[in-house]
């Protein structure tokens, strides 16, 4: 079995399995914990807060804007960039169609390439900020740096494969797929889980403060 066949087959399958089991384990392990009933008399029904919280924390409130806006913009740049690159690049859509039978229109290669470049720059800028800013440098741990690594690697190997720079295309593609496998394997263990937990946290806080008659 050559490297590409291994990467396409057993490696991705194993990675997907670990991703699914791990993610469910960690989500259920938290979401199934008991939550004490709140007996306080609500000022207003709490439920709307679960939705308002999702929207409100998409963007910094005005009093904080000047201090955190740069991080927000960089964060959005790479999150949106990753969505574009992962879901609107033609080979990815074909790969997904192959697996699940659904597809949608792709963006032109040049656009995806440019977005990939911007995404990479945003990720590098955030890494530099993480290392240079005294706050993020202090609070960062292995998870932060390793998660950065497993996020950047598929992007870089993918862009190299497209450009066919550095090695044979098949080798680059295999490395790309293996880096995706690494991302999937790491997903349930590190902070990538915020992709799910952010909804839960915003809903929780949103409801608590809605109940009290204010917002989160």
């Amino acid at each position: 079995m050559d490297l590409l066949t291994f990467a396409r087959g057993p490696a991705l399958q194993a990675a997907f399995t670990i991703f699914l089991i791990g993610t469910f384990w960690r989500l259920l392990g938290v979401l199934l914990l008991r939550r004490k009933l709140d007996h306080s008399e609500p000022r207003q029904p709490a439920l709307a807060g679960a939705f308002k919280g999702q929207i409100a924390h998409l963007w910094p409130y005005q009093p904080f804007a000047s201090r955190v806006m740069a991080s927000y913009l960089l964060g959005y740049a790479f999150h949106i960039g990753l969505v574009v690159v992962i879901f609107f690049y033609l080979p990815h859509i074909l790969f997904i169609q192959d697996l699940f039978g659904v597809s949608w229109p792709a963006l032109p290669h040049a656009v995806v390439n440019a977005v990939g470049g911007i995404t990479l720059m945003a990720l590098v800028a955030l890494l530099v900020k993480r290392l240079m800013n005294p706050v993020t440098r202090l609070i960062s741990n292995f998870d932060d740096y390793f998660t950065w690594f497993v996020t950047v690697t598929p992007l870089v190997t993918g862009m190299l494969a497209v450009a066919q720079v550095g090695a044979r295309y098949e080798t680059l593609l295999a490395l790309h797929l293996l880096s995706v496998a690494l991302l999937l394997i790491w997903f349930p263990f590190g902070k990538l889980m915020h992709a799910f937990f952010f909804v839960a946290a915003r809903a929780t806080t949103g409801m608590i403060f809605e109940r009290r008659g204010t917002h989160s």
């Binding site: 938290v30 008991r34 904080f64 991080s71 964060g75 800013n133 960062s140 902070k191 915020h194 608590i208």
Partner: peptide, 25 residues
Amino acid sequence: FGRVAAIYMESCVHCGACAEACHYY
């Protein structure tokens, strides 16, 4: 340690934004 606190503990991405709202920092 119920669900609420556990969700909070799991969600932090170490972005450091909280420092910018804190009068001590």
